[in-house]
């Protein structure tokens, strides 16, 4: 494992460094270092963004919040604006790795890594996040759902980098994040489920059960149109399950992943006493 470590002082220098196909950005390194060690990636150039102060900003844009690429999970957890305006993102972050991982890892890194198990990605998908990308041709913006195209794959091209992510404030939605793993700490989920609900409107996303984190758009529309009373509940849950396509791996079988999603949705929406109000 040999590589050059570059630490640019400006975004201009950063762009220069990234013009190399074999360059990889190092933010927290919680994914990159693991992948390099296991030999999955072997960049010749590792570009740290730690000196780029502007990428460490969290800003309030009114309806939305902008999170810079170098902001760590721990910084997000300490941010008042996040605490007040994005309970779903904080709930997801609480489930990520360990304290040490959260002190290093970044939300934007979670997007760049494009894992279907990304907990922060799931919360950002629910928050209709838009990814702010800089590149040789200037700035562009893309929704997080279209930006992530497969496991570990995004629309980022050579020379481009994510400068920030902009999420919707969702404090007026009820939120719920559930992660089912083999154990509680330092764990990659077997399945994860995020829900936002505001009256008849609902947003649903699933992690670890498809090549990417998926939104259940069809099921969401069904919920708004038909509701979930009586027999509608079963139909709603099946529409949710239709949106996922889990695989077998060392963590669980696809059969179990479907069952977990089904079971958790019944718990969230189906309890006779709770009637879906469990979503707080």
């Amino acid at each position: 494992m040999t590589f050059k470590l570059m630490i640019p002082n400006t975004e201009g220098e950063l762009q220069q460094e990234l013009m190399d196909d074999e360059a990889r950005i190092l933010a927290g390194g919680t994914d990159l270092m693991v992948q390099m060690r296991s030999g999955k990636v072997a960049p010749t150039r590792v570009v740290s963004i730690k000196k780029l102060e502007r990428l460490k900003e969290i800003s309030d844009l009114g309806e939305r919040i902008r999170i810079g690429a170098a902001v760590t999970y721990s910084e997000l957890q300490r941010s008042h604006i996040l605490q007040e305006k994005s309970p779903i993102l904080l709930k997801a972050i609480r489930q990520i790795g360990s304290l040490q991982i959260r002190n290093r890892g970044t939300a934007v890194g979670n997007i760049a890594n494009a894992s279907p198990a990304g907990d922060a990605v799931l919360a950002m998908v629910l928050s209709e996040a838009r990814v702010e990308i800089m590149g040789p041709k200037g700035e562009r913006h893309e929704s997080i759902e279209s930006f992530i195209i497969g496991p570990g794959r995004t629309t980022l091209s050579t020379g481009e980098y994510i400068r920030a992510v902009v999420i919707e404030k969702t404090d007026d939605w009820q939120s719920l994040f559930i992660k089912v793993g083999q154990r509680n700490a330092m764990c990659i989920s077997v399945a994860s489920i995020g829900v936002l609900r505001k009256g008849k409107e609902v947003r649903l996303a699933f992690g670890s059960v498809a090549p990417v984190v998926v939104r259940a758009h069809k099921a969401e529309r069904f919920f708004t149109r038909e509701g979930i009373d009586g027999t509608k509940l079963g139909e709603f849950v099946e529409r949710c399950v239709e949106s996922i396509s889990p695989i077998d791996d060392v963590r669980a079988s696809s059969w179990y992943r479907r069952q977990v999603v089904r079971g958790e949705l019944m718990k969230i929406f189906g309890h006779p006493d709770v009637g879906g109000t469990d979503v707080t």
Partner: peptide, 14 residues
Amino acid sequence: TTDFFTYKVPTRMD
């Protein structure tokens, strides 16, 4: 299951 990613030893939170 040769590493601690795939072989899950419980932590105190489990």
